[in-house]
Amino acid sequence: MYKINEFAEMTGLSKETLRYYAEVKLLEPAYTDPSNHYRYYDDGSFFLAILLVKLRGFGFTIQEMISVMEDESFEHLEDLLIQKRNNIQMQIEDLHLRIEEIDDFLASGKEENE
């Protein structure tokens, strides 16, 4: 079992984030000592925490991460990752179009000044 300080160091999640994740039932401690309310995490918690770090890095919202964690079999995780990838790809394409529009706008301003 790991105290919250140790677990935060191991996972890269802050103590505040771990407390928030417990509050929203995203990642609850394996054990909370009733006498002092210290939170303890185990190796299973470590796996879930690393998954959450990855999902957050992929741009998942808290609600999306809760959906993943509620599906304890992770049966739909691949579908969600593919959907997230497709959404990111569409955002990239949209940003490329915006860049082209800005370049066109800049070019048209230069042509008028000549």
Results as ranks from 00 to 15, higher is better:
T17A: 08
S14Q: 03
D94F: 06
Y21C: 00
Q89G: 00
F105E: 12
N5G: 14
V68C: 00
E114F: 03
L55Y: 07
F74Y: 15
M90V: 11
A8W: 04
A22Y: 09
Y31R: 03
I62C: 04
P29D: 03
Q89E: 14
D79I: 06
E93P: 02
A22I: 10
E72M: 08
D71Q: 05
E78G: 03
S45P: 06
L13E: 08
S67T: 15
K25D: 13
F7V: 06
I88C: 11
D104G: 00
E101I: 02
N87P: 02
L52R: 03
F105Y: 15
I4R: 01
G44T: 15
D42L: 02
G44H: 14
D33G: 00
I102W: 12
F47T: 14
G12L: 05
Y31V: 13
S35T: 14
L13F: 07
I4T: 14
L26P: 11
I50W: 08
E75I: 11
E23M: 04
I102Q: 13
D42S: 06
I82W: 08
S73F: 02
L106Q: 06
K25R: 10
R19H: 09
E111C: 03
Y38D: 03
E111P: 09
T32G: 00
K25Y: 11
E100D: 14
S67M: 12
P34H: 05
S45G: 09
S73L: 06
D104M: 02
I50T: 14
L52M: 07
H37Q: 14
I99S: 04
L27C: 05
L97S: 10
L52I: 15
I50N: 13
L97D: 12
Y20Q: 00
Y20H: 10
R85K: 14
V53I: 08
E111F: 02
E16A: 02
E101F: 08
D33Y: 05
K84P: 07
F7K: 00
M90C: 09
I4S: 01
I66Q: 15
G44Y: 14
L52H: 04
E112P: 08
S35A: 10
I82C: 07
G109W: 11
H76K: 12
I50Q: 13
K3I: 13
E101C: 02
L81I: 11
A107S: 12
I66F: 03
D104T: 08
I66G: 02
G44V: 12
S35Y: 15
L27M: 05
Q89W: 04
H96Y: 12
N87S: 09
E93G: 04
E100A: 05
L77Q: 12
N86R: 09
T11W: 00
S45Q: 02
F105M: 09
R19I: 07
S73P: 08
P29H: 05
N5I: 15
I99L: 05
S67K: 13
L27S: 05
